[in-house]
Design a protein around this nucleic acid. Structure first.
Lengths: 336, 336
DNA sequence: TTGTATGCGTTATCAC
DNA sequence: GTGATAACGCATACAA
C-alpha cells in the first residue's frame, strides 16, 4: 500500500557516499563550495542508487512548488484545450507544471476547486470559469496565491486578468449587417449553462437590436450537435418560409448543426439561412459551407496568461489587465 | 517573493483554540476521539483564521499525495482532450487531482517527463505517449509508481496497460472493401511524427495489401489542415483522372482536407475519391460529406485508465491488460 | 479524550 | 569545503 516506501532518500545517498546530507544537497542544487572530487563521488552514488529528490520535501522546505493550478470547465471543448495547450507550452518553458482542476457548471463545485487550489500549495493559478464571481476569485487571492483570471475582471494585489471584448465586435457585426442591406431577422441561439461569455453576447445582441429598433429572437437549444441538428431540421422542414433568418450560435459544432440542418432541409446557406459562430475554431474553416465566425486565439490567450502569471509571481507584472479582441472572419455561411 | 509566507498553520490554530495541534489534526481528518465541545471550538477557530491544511505537508507526512501524473502529447488534439476529459472525470470522482506533463514529439523530452513524474511524488501515473518505449516506461515503475500505459504494452508489478486494436479492424475494412467490389487503389497518407499508432496502421495497411496482392501507395503529407488541403487540391486539379482513389488519413481534420480538396476540385466524393479517417471524433459527423472513420471512444479510454489506476494503487487490479477495439463507422465519404 | 514526541525528505543557517 | 542542526507543516504512535 505504501507505494513509495522504498524511495531512496538524500540521507541514504549521503551515507553511501560517505558524506553528510548537506553536501549532497549542495550537489543537487548545483551550488558551489564542493570539491570536484566529492562532487564526482556524490554524483556517482546518486546515479548508482537511482536517487531522485522528493519534490514534496523540496517544496515544503523552500515554500515553492513549481506548480500552477489551472481551473477550467471540463476540458472537452476545442477552445478550452487550445487554451490549455497555450498555458502548458509557456509553463513548460518556465519550468512549471500544471495541476488541473476541472469544474462542471456548478458554482459550488467551482468554489470547492478554489479551496483545493489553496490547499494544493500552488505557486500561482490561472482561472477560467464562468461560474466564479469576482468575490469568489478574490478568495484565492486573499491567501496570497497569485492568480490570473480570464474573462472575469479582478482587482487585487497579486492578481491580473484577461478580458475578452466580444460584445463590441458583435454589435459592430450586427450594425454592419443591416447597413449593408442584410434583411433577415436575427435569432440568438441560447444554450443552457452557456456561461457568462454567452450571456454577455446575448445582452449585447438584444441591446443592439433595441437601439436599432429591429425585431429579434432568442431561441433555446441543447448544447449538443445532434440535438440541435434534430431541432433545427424539424423546424426547417416544418416551416421553410418562416425559418429564413440569421442565426447566431455559441460554438462551431452548434453552428454547424444549423448549417447542416438547413442544407439537408433543402434551404440554401447563406441564401435562406445565415449562421454565425461566436466561438470559432479551426473547424469553422473545415465545415462546408465554411462558417463565418468570431474568434479569439485561445492558445494565444493561454500563453499570455502564463506569461502574466510568471511576471506576477515575481512581482513584476506591469499591466495587470489585458484585453483580447474578438475578430470577425466572414466565410461562406453569411452574406456580409 | 515568499508568496505563501503568511499561511496559517495548524500550530496557530491549536494555539488560538487552546488545544494541542494533535487535536486540530484529528478534527481535520474527522477522526473520532474528540469531544463535541472541543471539536466545535476547533472548527470555529479554523473558520475564523481561514485555515487550510497544507497538502504538501500532509503528503509528506502520509506519503500520499492525491495526485495523478498524466503524460500526454500536447493537449491540442480533440481525441487527446477527450482522453483527458475522461481521466479527469473519474479522477475527480475518486478524489484525485491531475498533474499534466505534456511532451512534444521528442524522445528525450518524454524521458525527462518521466523523471519529473517521479520527483513530483504522484500516487500514480497514466501515460499516453508514442515516444516512450516499454523500457522507458518501466523506469517509472521501478520507482514503484503505479502506472497505466495506453497504447504501449507493459509488464510490471505495479503496472497495467490499455491496448488499442486498430490494425485488425483496419485489415478487415480493407479486405471487405475489395470483396464488396471496391476498385480504387488505396493510398495511406503518412504524416511525420504521427506516432506509433499511425505507424502500426501503416504496417497493417501494407501487409494486408501484400497479402491480397494488390497495389497500394503511401503519401507523405503535413500534419496540418491547410497544408494538406493545398497539397491535395493541387494534386486533384493537376491530374483529376489519376487522383481517383481511396485515401486513408490519420485524423478527421486531415481527412476533411482531402474531402474538401476533392470536392472543390470538382471531383465527387465518394464517387471519385473515397476517404477514411483513422482517428474519428464527433467532427466526422459534422463535415460534409460525413466522414467514414474508425474510432475509439477516447473519453471511455480515459475513464477506464483512471479506474484501472485506482485499483492498481490499492493493489486491487485483477486484469492488468485491457483492449479497446476500434470500430468502423461507414458514413458518406466511402462507398462500402 | 487529549497532549507529547518523533518522523516525513528537503533546504538553509550556522559552526567547524 | 564540510557537517551538525533547526526549520517546513502535518500525521501518528504512544503516553497521560
Amino acid at each position: 500500500m505504501n507505494n513509495l516506501k522504498d524511495r531512496v532518500t538524500i540521507y541514504q545517498v549521503a551515507q553511501a557516499a560517505g558524506v553528510s546530507l548537506a553536501t549532497v544537497s549542495r550537489v543537487i542544487n548545483k551550488q558551489g563550495n564542493v570539491t570536484d572530487t566529492t562532487r564526482a563521488k556524490v554524483e556517482a552514488t546518486i546515479k548508482k542508487l537511482g536517487y531522485k529528490p522528493s519534490g514534496l520535501a523540496q517544496a515544503l522546505a523552500t515554500n515553492k512548488t513549481t506548480n500552477i493550478g489551472v481551473i477550467i470547465p471540463s476540458a472537452n471543448y476545442v477552445y478550452i484545450s487550445n487554451l490549455l495547450s497555450g498555458i502548458s507550452e509557456i509553463a513548460k518553458q518556465k519550468g512549471f507544471v500544471l495541476t488541473l482542476f476541472t469544474t462542471s457548471h456548478s458554482h459550488e463545485e467551482a468554489l470547492s476547486m478554489i479551496e483545493k487550489v489553496i490547499t494544493t500549495h500552488v505557486d500561482g493559478a490561472i482561472i477560467f470559469d464562468d461560474e466564479l464571481s469576482e468575490e469568489d476569485v478574490m478568495k484565492i487571492n486573499s491567501y496570497s496565491v497569485p492568480a490570473i483570471v480570464i474573462n472575469t475582471v479582478l482587482t487585487g494585489e497579486k492578481a491580473g486578468s484577461i478580458k475578452f471584448s466580444y460584445g463590441e465586435e458583435l454589435k459592430r457585426i450586427i450594425r454592419q449587417y443591416y447597413e449593408k442591406g442584410g434583411d433577415k431577422e436575427m435569432t440568438f441561439v441560447h444554450v443552457h449553462d452557456g456561461g457568462r461569455l454567452l450571456n454577455h453576447c446575448e445582452r449585447c445582441f438584444a441591446s443592439m437590436h433595441q437601439e436599432l429598433g429591429r425585431p429579434y429572437h432568442v431561441l433555446n437549444c441543447d448544447d449538443s450537435y445532434s440535438h440541435t441538428y434534430a431541432d433545427f431540421y424539424q423546424r426547417f422542414t416544418e416551416d421553410p418560409k418562416g425559418s429564413r433568418g440569421y442565426y447566431i450560435a455559441y460554438r462551431d459544432s452548434l453552428a454547424s448543426a444549423i448549417i447542416n440542418a438547413a442544407t439537408d432541409a433543402g434551404l440554401s446557406v447563406p441564401g435562406d439561412v445565415e449562421v454565425l459562430s461566436l466561438v470559432g475554431t479551426k473547424y469553422a474553416n473545415i465545415v462546408r459551407p465554411t462558417l463565418s465566425s468570431m474568434q479569439i486565439d485561445m492558445q494565444e490567450v493561454g500563453k499570455r496568461a502564463m506569461w502574466m502569471l510568471t511576471d506576477l509571481i515575481q512581482d513584476n507584472l506591469m499591466e495587470k489587465t489585458c484585453r483580447f479582441e474578438a475578430h470577425f472572419t466572414k466565410r461562406d455561411s453569411t452574406i456580409v
